[in-house]
Simulated assay, not measured.
Amino acid sequence: MGKKSLGVIGGMGPMATSVFFEKVIENTVAGADQDHINMIILNHATLPDRTSVILNKEENTFLDAVEEDIKLLERAGVANIAIPCNTSHYFYDKMQEMTGVNIIHMIDETCKEIHQSYGDNSKIGILATNGTVSSGIYEKGCNAYNMQLYKPNKVYQEQIMNTIYNVKSDLDIDVNVIENIIKDLIHNEGCSCVILACTELSCLKLSDEVIPYCVDAMDVLVERSIEYSGGVVKKAKS
Protein backbone atom coordinates (compact mmCIF):
# COMPACT_ATOMS: atom_id res chain seq x y z
CA MET A 1 0.00 0.00 0.00
CA GLY A 2 1.46 3.33 -1.05
CA LYS A 3 1.59 6.37 1.16
CA LYS A 4 -1.45 8.64 1.20
CA SER A 5 -1.65 12.09 2.75
CA LEU A 6 -3.75 12.58 5.84
CA GLY A 7 -5.66 15.78 6.49
CA VAL A 8 -6.37 16.75 10.09
CA ILE A 9 -8.97 19.24 11.26
CA GLY A 10 -7.68 20.21 14.68
CA GLY A 11 -7.94 22.97 17.22
CA MET A 12 -10.70 21.20 19.20
CA GLY A 13 -8.72 21.78 21.37
CA PRO A 14 -5.19 22.75 20.33
CA MET A 15 -3.49 20.68 23.05
CA ALA A 16 -5.46 17.60 22.03
CA THR A 17 -4.42 18.18 18.41
CA SER A 18 -0.79 18.36 19.50
CA VAL A 19 -1.18 15.08 21.40
CA PHE A 20 -2.79 13.48 18.34
CA PHE A 21 0.15 14.50 16.16
CA GLU A 22 2.67 13.21 18.69
CA LYS A 23 0.80 9.92 19.01
CA VAL A 24 0.82 9.43 15.23
CA ILE A 25 4.60 9.91 15.20
CA GLU A 26 5.18 7.73 18.27
CA ASN A 27 3.00 4.89 16.99
CA THR A 28 4.34 4.68 13.44
CA VAL A 29 7.00 2.10 12.65
CA ALA A 30 9.76 4.23 11.13
CA GLY A 31 13.48 3.95 10.66
CA ALA A 32 13.72 7.21 8.73
CA ASP A 33 11.72 10.39 8.11
CA GLN A 34 10.37 8.91 4.90
CA ASP A 35 8.65 6.05 6.76
CA HIS A 36 6.27 8.47 8.47
CA ILE A 37 2.98 9.54 6.91
CA ASN A 38 2.40 12.92 5.29
CA MET A 39 -0.01 15.10 7.25
CA ILE A 40 -1.64 18.47 6.70
CA ILE A 41 -2.89 19.81 10.04
CA LEU A 42 -5.33 22.70 10.29
CA ASN A 43 -5.35 23.98 13.86
CA HIS A 44 -8.68 25.79 13.58
CA ALA A 45 -8.94 26.83 17.23
CA THR A 46 -11.70 29.39 16.59
CA LEU A 47 -14.25 26.77 15.52
CA PRO A 48 -17.41 27.18 17.64
CA ASP A 49 -17.60 25.14 20.85
CA ARG A 50 -19.18 21.85 19.85
CA THR A 51 -21.08 21.22 23.10
CA SER A 52 -22.64 24.70 23.04
CA VAL A 53 -23.59 24.34 19.38
CA ILE A 54 -25.32 21.01 19.97
CA LEU A 55 -27.13 22.00 23.16
CA ASN A 56 -28.26 25.33 21.67
CA LYS A 57 -29.25 23.76 18.33
CA GLU A 58 -26.95 26.05 16.35
CA GLU A 59 -25.24 23.39 14.26
CA ASN A 60 -24.95 25.53 11.13
CA THR A 61 -22.49 27.85 12.87
CA PHE A 62 -20.14 24.90 13.19
CA LEU A 63 -20.87 23.32 9.83
CA ASP A 64 -20.35 26.56 7.90
CA ALA A 65 -16.97 27.05 9.57
CA VAL A 66 -15.71 23.49 9.21
CA GLU A 67 -16.77 23.26 5.54
CA GLU A 68 -13.99 25.68 4.63
CA ASP A 69 -11.46 23.36 6.30
CA ILE A 70 -12.81 20.31 4.53
CA LYS A 71 -12.67 22.01 1.13
CA LEU A 72 -9.14 23.27 1.81
CA LEU A 73 -7.94 19.76 2.63
CA GLU A 74 -9.78 18.40 -0.39
CA ARG A 75 -7.93 20.85 -2.64
CA ALA A 76 -4.67 19.83 -0.99
CA GLY A 77 -5.25 16.29 -2.23
CA VAL A 78 -5.52 14.38 1.05
CA ALA A 79 -6.87 10.83 0.87
CA ASN A 80 -8.44 10.76 4.34
CA ILE A 81 -9.43 13.29 6.98
CA ALA A 82 -9.08 12.76 10.72
CA ILE A 83 -10.89 14.97 13.23
CA PRO A 84 -9.50 14.45 16.74
CA CYS A 85 -12.65 15.64 18.50
CA ASN A 86 -15.35 13.20 19.58
CA THR A 87 -18.17 15.73 19.93
CA SER A 88 -17.71 16.98 16.36
CA HIS A 89 -18.73 13.55 15.07
CA TYR A 90 -22.32 14.45 15.93
CA PHE A 91 -22.08 16.24 12.56
CA TYR A 92 -20.32 13.35 10.80
CA ASP A 93 -22.94 12.59 8.15
CA LYS A 94 -23.30 16.24 7.14
CA MET A 95 -19.53 16.73 7.05
CA GLN A 96 -19.07 13.63 4.90
CA GLU A 97 -21.72 14.92 2.50
CA MET A 98 -19.50 17.96 1.90
CA THR A 99 -16.68 15.96 0.32
CA GLY A 100 -15.70 12.84 -1.57
CA VAL A 101 -12.67 12.47 0.73
CA ASN A 102 -13.15 9.81 3.39
CA ILE A 103 -13.56 11.22 6.89
CA ILE A 104 -12.43 8.58 9.38
CA HIS A 105 -15.36 7.83 11.69
CA MET A 106 -13.78 8.03 15.14
CA ILE A 107 -16.88 6.80 17.00
CA ASP A 108 -17.66 3.83 14.74
CA GLU A 109 -14.01 2.73 14.67
CA THR A 110 -13.87 2.89 18.48
CA CYS A 111 -17.08 0.94 19.01
CA LYS A 112 -15.97 -1.64 16.45
CA GLU A 113 -12.67 -2.15 18.28
CA ILE A 114 -14.41 -2.47 21.65
CA HIS A 115 -16.81 -5.05 20.25
CA GLN A 116 -13.90 -7.09 18.91
CA SER A 117 -12.47 -7.21 22.44
CA TYR A 118 -15.60 -7.56 24.58
CA GLY A 119 -18.33 -8.89 22.29
CA ASP A 120 -22.11 -8.68 22.31
CA ASN A 121 -24.08 -7.41 25.31
CA SER A 122 -21.04 -5.70 26.84
CA LYS A 123 -21.73 -2.80 29.19
CA ILE A 124 -19.53 0.13 28.21
CA GLY A 125 -18.88 3.23 30.32
CA ILE A 126 -18.15 6.62 28.81
CA LEU A 127 -16.30 9.77 29.88
CA ALA A 128 -17.18 12.63 27.54
CA THR A 129 -18.52 16.17 27.26
CA ASN A 130 -22.17 16.93 27.88
CA GLY A 131 -22.44 17.52 24.14
CA THR A 132 -21.12 14.08 23.26
CA VAL A 133 -23.25 12.33 25.88
CA SER A 134 -26.46 14.18 25.02
CA SER A 135 -25.91 13.80 21.27
CA GLY A 136 -26.28 10.02 21.52
CA ILE A 137 -23.46 9.32 19.06
CA TYR A 138 -21.78 6.72 21.26
CA GLU A 139 -25.10 5.22 22.31
CA LYS A 140 -25.94 4.76 18.64
CA GLY A 141 -22.46 3.38 17.99
CA CYS A 142 -22.70 0.85 20.80
CA ASN A 143 -26.21 -0.21 19.78
CA ALA A 144 -24.96 -0.90 16.26
CA TYR A 145 -22.61 -3.51 17.74
CA ASN A 146 -25.15 -4.89 20.21
CA MET A 147 -23.52 -3.28 23.23
CA GLN A 148 -24.98 -1.17 26.04
CA LEU A 149 -23.64 2.30 26.79
CA TYR A 150 -23.61 3.30 30.48
CA LYS A 151 -23.62 7.02 31.21
CA PRO A 152 -22.16 8.48 34.43
CA ASN A 153 -24.50 10.07 36.97
CA LYS A 154 -24.93 13.85 37.17
CA VAL A 155 -22.27 14.33 39.85
CA TYR A 156 -19.70 12.37 37.88
CA GLN A 157 -20.66 14.12 34.64
CA GLU A 158 -20.09 17.52 36.23
CA GLN A 159 -16.67 16.39 37.47
CA ILE A 160 -15.80 15.09 34.00
CA MET A 161 -16.82 18.39 32.36
CA ASN A 162 -14.82 20.39 34.89
CA THR A 163 -11.75 18.28 34.16
CA ILE A 164 -12.15 18.62 30.39
CA TYR A 165 -12.49 22.39 30.49
CA ASN A 166 -9.65 22.71 33.01
CA VAL A 167 -7.44 20.98 30.45
CA LYS A 168 -8.63 23.44 27.80
CA SER A 169 -7.92 26.34 30.18
CA ASP A 170 -4.52 24.99 31.25
CA LEU A 171 -5.62 24.83 34.88
CA ASP A 172 -4.50 22.34 37.52
CA ILE A 173 -5.99 18.86 37.12
CA ASP A 174 -6.71 16.31 39.84
CA VAL A 175 -6.35 13.07 37.89
CA ASN A 176 -7.64 11.12 40.89
CA VAL A 177 -11.12 12.49 40.19
CA ILE A 178 -11.20 10.82 36.77
CA GLU A 179 -9.51 7.65 38.00
CA ASN A 180 -12.05 7.22 40.81
CA ILE A 181 -14.90 7.52 38.32
CA ILE A 182 -13.31 4.88 36.09
CA LYS A 183 -12.82 2.52 39.05
CA ASP A 184 -16.44 2.95 40.10
CA LEU A 185 -17.76 2.29 36.60
CA ILE A 186 -15.68 -0.89 36.35
CA HIS A 187 -15.88 -2.35 39.84
CA ASN A 188 -19.30 -1.18 41.02
CA GLU A 189 -21.33 -0.60 37.86
CA GLY A 190 -20.09 -3.67 36.00
CA CYS A 191 -18.73 -1.99 32.90
CA SER A 192 -16.35 -4.05 30.75
CA CYS A 193 -14.35 -0.95 29.85
CA VAL A 194 -14.60 2.83 29.80
CA ILE A 195 -14.29 4.94 26.65
CA LEU A 196 -12.18 8.07 26.98
CA ALA A 197 -14.43 9.90 24.57
CA CYS A 198 -12.96 13.37 24.76
CA THR A 199 -9.55 14.19 23.35
CA GLU A 200 -8.77 16.43 26.35
CA LEU A 201 -8.87 13.27 28.48
CA SER A 202 -6.17 11.86 26.20
CA CYS A 203 -3.91 14.60 27.55
CA LEU A 204 -4.07 13.18 31.09
CA LYS A 205 -1.45 10.81 32.48
CA LEU A 206 -3.51 8.02 34.00
CA SER A 207 -2.06 5.38 36.31
CA ASP A 208 -1.23 1.83 35.31
CA GLU A 209 -4.06 0.74 37.62
CA VAL A 210 -6.82 2.18 35.42
CA ILE A 211 -5.27 2.24 31.94
CA PRO A 212 -6.15 -1.43 31.21
CA TYR A 213 -9.83 -0.58 31.66
CA CYS A 214 -9.76 2.37 29.25
CA VAL A 215 -10.25 2.53 25.50
CA ASP A 216 -9.02 5.91 24.28
CA ALA A 217 -10.93 6.96 21.18
CA MET A 218 -7.99 9.14 20.17
CA ASP A 219 -5.69 6.10 20.18
CA VAL A 220 -8.10 4.29 17.88
CA LEU A 221 -8.19 7.31 15.54
CA VAL A 222 -4.39 7.45 15.58
CA GLU A 223 -4.08 3.80 14.55
CA ARG A 224 -6.64 4.07 11.76
CA SER A 225 -5.03 7.28 10.51
CA ILE A 226 -1.68 5.54 10.21
CA GLU A 227 -3.15 2.45 8.56
CA TYR A 228 -5.32 4.33 6.05
CA SER A 229 -2.31 6.48 5.12
CA GLY A 230 -0.14 3.47 4.27
CA GLY A 231 1.95 3.54 7.44
CA VAL A 232 2.62 0.68 9.85
CA VAL A 233 1.31 0.82 13.43
CA LYS A 234 3.68 -0.22 16.19
CA LYS A 235 2.54 -3.28 18.09
CA ALA A 236 1.85 -2.76 21.78
CA LYS A 237 4.61 -3.97 24.04
CA SER A 238 3.64 -7.03 26.04
Rank of each mutant, 00 (worst) to 15 (best):
Y213E: 09
G136A: 08
V19L: 10
G230H: 08
L6A: 07
Y228A: 11
L127C: 00
L149Y: 03
I114C: 11
I124G: 11
L171S: 05
C214G: 04
D35S: 12
N143G: 03
I126F: 06
E139H: 11
T110C: 02
C198H: 04
K23F: 04
T61N: 12
Q34H: 13
V222G: 10
E74R: 05
S5W: 09
N86W: 02
L127A: 07
H187P: 00
S52D: 14
I181C: 05
I41P: 04
D184G: 05
N130S: 13
I182R: 01
I103T: 07
S117L: 14
I211N: 10
L73N: 10
S169L: 13
P152S: 09
E139Q: 14
I186G: 04
K94S: 14
V29R: 11
R224A: 09
V53T: 15
I107D: 02
Y156S: 15
N130M: 08
V101S: 00
V53G: 04
N143F: 06
D64S: 11
Y118P: 11
I70R: 06
D184L: 06
I103V: 03
G119E: 09
V133H: 02
N121I: 01
K23G: 05
E179W: 03
N162Y: 02
N43I: 15
K151L: 14
I9E: 02
S207H: 01
P84V: 06
Q116G: 15
S122I: 04
D216A: 01
K237N: 14
E109G: 00
V53D: 00
M1S: 15
V220E: 07
T51F: 03
G100Q: 13
K71H: 14
E68I: 13
I54G: 02
D69N: 13
K123F: 03
I173Q: 06
M161Q: 14
Q157E: 12
H105D: 15
E223I: 09
Y165D: 08
D120G: 01
I124F: 00
T61R: 13
E179T: 01
I137K: 01
T199I: 07
N166L: 01
H187D: 11
K205L: 13
P84E: 10
D93F: 08
I107C: 07
D216W: 04
A82H: 04
K234L: 12
T132S: 11
I178E: 09
G2A: 09
A128W: 05
I164Q: 09
A144V: 07
V155Y: 05
V24L: 15
Y213V: 10
Y90Q: 07
G125M: 06
G10R: 06
R224M: 15
G100V: 12
E113M: 12
V167G: 02
K151C: 14
I178K: 00
P14R: 10
Q148I: 13
E67R: 13
S202H: 08
D208F: 01
I173F: 01
L149R: 06
L6I: 11
I81Q: 03
L149M: 14
V53K: 00
A65T: 03
D170C: 04
E109Q: 14
R224F: 13
H89P: 01
C191L: 05
K4C: 02
H89T: 08
N180C: 00
R224E: 15
V215H: 09
M98V: 09
G230A: 08
I160D: 05
A128E: 10
A79M: 00
D216Y: 04
A32C: 13
D35T: 09
K205A: 13
D184Y: 12
K57R: 12
N130K: 13
S122W: 05
G10L: 03
H115R: 12
